[in-house]
Design a protein around this nucleic acid. Structure first.
Lengths: 150, 150
DNA sequence: ATAAAAGTTAAAGTGAACTTTAAGTCAAGT
DNA sequence: ACTTGACTTAAAGTTCACTTTAACTTTTAT
């Protein structure tokens, strides 16, 4: 089976211009063309699925491109590609950890407002603190990307 | 205790210019000034912690600003603020679900490369598919933000 | 045969979240 | 008193990931 750019865009939940942009950036290797028109085939979906995963877990376009280039080199780059995947797995694990922490934070806020609404005023909870003490700013987990030397 | 912008920046893992930018955007309400110089006090850290949570869970600056404005209105906005927090809790829950899905995907890739490296060639795994079949593109979870009518 | 719909490109534009620059003020140490 | 370093502002610049535009070609439907 073969698919038009519009069909693939709809399947992936992106716009056609986004797919053309990805193609331009070298993120759609070996894409078939008929009279200059892009034709997606079943084999392409295998990669689109990986692309979707990397993209939605914050891997920059440039790094995805690097991965594509490695893949083009064949078996010689297996180890490098493996390392890149391991790195990304770690990114994902760290993210999940972080989001779980923020879930706790927001659940405290949820409790805070429930209590305040019941009481009719924020005064009732104003001096409360989350279980992990509020003032311990150094306990706020910091994203790698945020850390700065300056 | 009071803290300089640099001290706070270091504690939060951001640059001083980022904090000034947040201030400019109205994200640091009631910030004390001495001779025009920003002075952070303990009470500010309570808010900085919430700010940190909202910011790192993808809430746009503009929406955080709305939250700040609601808070300024006092008890009258309790219900609205509660709803905003509930919405954000959902954002977080959805994100965790999504990232857990991508963890499975990447773990398949991890297995894929481990197998290929052992065999010395990708040929050995080329025709394998993850447990959830590769070609079922419609099973790829799509972020709200990605969905388009076009 | 023809009109409309969908495809193409290169290039310019957008929006979010900062970051940098330039010109200046304030505070601390020698 | 003076230099150094941290602070201030407004405004311009940057980066990323698209999105839009304009001019054009190809495909599809009537």
């Amino acid at each position: 089976m073969s698919y038009s750019i519009k069909e693939v865009a709809d399947m992936m939940g992106v716009s056609t211009s986004t797919l053309r942009y990805y193609d331009q950036e070298g993120l759609l290797p070996d894409l078939k063309r008929v009279n200059g028109i892009r034709v997606f085939e079943d084999k392409d979906f295998k990669w689109l699925r990986v692309l979707n995963c990397l993209k939605n877990t914050n891997m920059p376009i440039k790094k995805i491109k690097e991965y594509v280039e490695l893949a083009k080199q064949g078996d010689a780059s297996l180890e490098e590609r493996y390392q890149l995947i391991l790195e990304q797995k770690n990114v994902i694990l760290e993210q999940i950890k972080e989001w779980k922490y923020y879930l706790k934070e927001i659940e405290y806020k949820e409790w805070y407002y429930e209590t305040a609404i019941k009481a009719g005023t924020e005064e009732a909870v104003k001096d409360c603190t989350p279980e992990t003490p509020t003032l311990a700013v150094d306990r706020i987990p910091q994203k790698e990307k945020n850390r700065k030397k300056e």
